[in-house]
Design a protein around this nucleic acid. Structure first.
Lengths: 145, 145
DNA sequence: TTGCAACCTCAAGCTAAGTTGAGGTCAAGC
DNA sequence: GCTTGACCTCAACTTAGCTTGAGGTTGCAA
């Protein structure tokens, strides 16, 4: 550990539990930035450990990397997020969780209403409309909820 | 509409809201089966509308096609699922929903406990361990959610 | 019987979030 | 000075769940 505390990628990987390739990938996506040694090796700031940790948490909550990038926007590279940053970010995450819970509860209730009826009759069954926003959009794989 | 009620794929698509290509894909995956005309065109049974409708619902709940196939196993092609079938299947779905809700609530509470602390300190923060089963497995994309 | 929409197959492409591998360089300890 | 493990880039591959396109056939109605 040098005085100026720059971490090579392997160290960052060990500290965060991410793979080296994943960190490189995140850099490519613009989620982290790295300094370079004269020999072109990456060196990260200490604060990037937290930055990556945040990414891990946000991912578990179902945010895509693009959304995470947006959430992190304005948070300077390597800076330790302070209480205000964290409050701002966690606020939007909390809302997301609440929405997901509400949507699942709605679905569960619809399911209860349906048990035994076996209707599954398109459009009529509440299950189909339990959560409108689950429509698809664009090409590619249907988003796995 | 003939007496024996066989539906061409386009009709089935219109009735279910699925695309023709998706239905073909599901057939390839073994989720539905089709009869063929002498000219090799697919003809589906009426009951397949419900079968496909069920697939749509199950997908919304986060089941993969493989899991759905498993859930449908034993349910004869084209047969209208009866109350017993539906009870069996919906039972496992309900459990899934409950689990998801519980997991999200746990996460929300952890988040609340964390707001303001901004700790994000690997392993120590409850958010990291909010739901153990979210570990990864194998290659490919990390399962979303 | 002819026209044309709907159907067919098969191959390739797409997205997200990475992993894997080849082929080569760097840096730190002995 | 040399070895060796950590690092580098770049391209290709992975999975799931489809879509798109090319090139050809069917079936129904007028």
């Amino acid at each position: 550990m040098k005085a100026n505390d720059l971490l090579p990628i392997g160290e960052l990987a060990r500290r965060t539990g991410l793979s080296v390739s994943a960190i490189r990938f995140y850099e490519e996506c613009g989620l982290v930035e790295a300094l370079r040694t004269s020999g072109n090796q990456r060196r990260f700031l200490r604060g990037d450990i937290r930055r990556l940790s945040f990414i891990l948490i946000a991912q578990r909550l179902g945010l895509s990397l693009a959304e995470i990038e947006e959430a992190l926007a304005g948070l300077p590279q390597g800076r330790t997020p302070n209480a205000a940053d964290w409050k701002r970010i966690s606020g939007s995450i909390r809302k997301r969780i609440e929405d997901q819970i509400a949507s699942l509860e709605k679905m569960r209730d619809s399911l209860d209403g349906c048990i035994g009826c076996g209707c599954l009759s398109l459009k009529k069954c509440a299950l189909y409309n339990a959560d409108d926003k689950w429509g698809e959009s664009g090409t590619g794989p249907r988003v796995l909820r």
